[in-house]
């Protein structure tokens, strides 16, 4: 190769490499990916108790650094002999959406962009076809004549399609019936979001933002600890509350008492009583065979 063509080749190569380097220049701002600790973090089910302790501490430090609030992050395990069931009384629900926002507050959901686990549908009397539902209703006051309201959130299916399709086991069903997500294991393929017949899963399309003053510091690993960009999340029946015996936040805020929750294996629980005594209860899209643990019912 002679000198001139060598120069020519190197000029093209050099400018090409310069353009290549410049094209990657936005990566300068990439601080979310750089932590080696996070990169090599193990799968939830493979963490030893000792490692879990370390991870929880690391998460507490990260939250404190990011939000200036020291949280208390716990790894809560399912209780023995407990299977959670939710029952929602469609006769009582007035469509006020308080559950939506209480959930956002309890579970540290992103405010901008907005992530909400509960979607309330305004439905015309006489039909349970969700395609007739209105999502953006904003009247002066609710309820409105001729309509009923149907809040939809994760139905905690017994046969969850989202768990089946996840390519990396990042989402699974716990023994108490709650389907959880390991936010540090999810690869963000959104196959579960496509698979869910209830539109119950949410994706972090960008870094979530929560104002400092609205952080809930009582956190659980599989529950409401802050998520990062690029992973899925979903309703987990407020694991940080229910696994210490409390009611979920959406239930406690409901002004109409339309929401009922409890252990179906306990015959004295409210939900056992409801499923025993109410004549009709509905599993949404029952024909799909997902077998939800979330029941809708009507009474007088």
């Amino acid at each position: 190769m002679d000198r001139r063509s060598f120069l020519r080749t190197s000029a093209v190569l050099a400018s090409g490499l310069a353009a290549l380097a410049a094209s990657l220049s936005p990566l300068r701002k990439l601080d979310d990916y750089v932590s080696l600790e996070r990169f090599v973090q193990k799968y939830y089910k493979e963490l030893t108790p000792e490692e879990m302790k370390q991870v929880l501490k690391r998460i507490e430090n990260e939250v404190e650094r990011q939000y200036g609030i020291r949280p208390h992050v716990r790894d809560l395990k399912p209780m023995d002999g407990v299977e959670y069931v939710y029952a929602l009384n469609l006769t009582r629900c007035i469509g006020c959406r308080k559950c939506v926002h209480a959930c956002v507050q309890e579970n540290n959901l992103s405010r901008t962009p907005e992530i909400q686990y509960i979607r309330v549908l305004k439905m015309p009397h006489g039909s349970l076809d969700v395609e007739k539902g209105e999502h953006n209703y904003a009247p002066e006051s609710v309820p409105e004549k001729g309509f009923f309201y149907m809040p939809v959130q994760c139905q905690q299916c017994k046969n969850p399609p989202c768990v089946k399709v996840c390519p990396v086991h990042a989402t699974w069903q716990e023994t108490d019936g709650i389907t959880v997500v390991d936010y540090d294991w999810c690869i963000g393929c959104r196959y579960c979001e496509a698979a869910c017949p209830y539109w119950a899963r949410r994706f972090n399309f960008t870094q979530p933002s929560i104002p400092k003053e609205r952080i809930n510091p009582d956190m659980a690993y599989l529950g409401n600890r802050p998520r990062r960009q690029g992973v899925m999340e979903k309703c987990h029946f407020c694991i940080q509350r229910t696994r210490v015996g409390r009611y979920p936040a959406c239930l406690e805020v409901c002004p109409a008492g339309a929401r009922k929750f409890g252990n179906i294996l306990d015959p004295n629980s409210e939900v056992s009583y409801i499923l025993r005594t109410k004549r009709v209860f509905i599993q949404l899209k029952e024909e799909l065979g997902t077998s939800p643990r979330f029941f809708y019912y009507f009474d007088t």
């Binding site: 990566l27 701002k29 990439l30 399309f205 960008t206 690029g230």
Partner: peptide, 16 residues
């Protein structure tokens, strides 16, 4: 290169 640059932006800002 145009695509790579766009992907770099997507990595930083997310799928938004």
């Amino acid at each position: 290169l145009l695509g790579l640059n766009a992907y770099a932006k997507q990595l930083v800002n997310g799928l938004i």
